[in-house]
């Protein structure tokens, strides 16, 4: 019975991080969004530098989301969230790597 209702009870009762961690996460994610925006809008860096900066910010953003909002460290065994994360990383690498590989014909065409 009790195990069955976890889905409903979690919503109100148990704590999922403090207000402080949420605020910190929120500030981080805003800052990480503003940095690339400012760089692109003002043309502060050259093209390669801009692309690399945006990518770094994106990865940091992902980490912030996972730790401050997705609570990747919490949860009981079995560690479904870690398993899902591993599959997710594989898929993301496939998407990015696969796209670069497939679309690289474009550079030879142009």
């Amino acid at each position: 019975m009790s195990q069955h209702n976890t889905g409903h009870e979690h919503a109100s009762g148990e704590s999922h991080g403090s207000l402080k961690s949420y605020v910190i996460g929120f500030i981080f994610s805003i800052v990480l969004t503003i940095i690339p925006l400012v760089i692109v809008m003002n043309g502060l860096l050259n093209k390669t530098q801009t692309v690399i900066t945006i990518m770094i910010m994106a990865v940091l953003q992902l980490i912030v989301q996972l730790f401050f909002f997705m609570h990747i460290r919490e949860g009981e065994k079995p560690r479904w969230n870690v398993m899902t994360l591993i599959v997710g990383i594989i898929i993301v690498l496939t998407i990015v790597g696969g796209s670069i590989w497939i679309m690289s014909f474009n550079s030879t065409v142009q």
């Binding site: 898929i91 496939t94 696969g98 590989w101 497939i102 679309m103 690289s104 014909f105 065409v109």
Partner: peptide, 18 residues
């Protein structure tokens, strides 16, 4: 199923390895 998508556009002109 996540590793087969390019078979929908073999004729796009990606490299033979792809």
């Amino acid at each position: 199923s996540f590793f087969t998508w390019a078979h929908h556009f073999f004729t796009m002109g990606a490299s033979a390895n792809v």
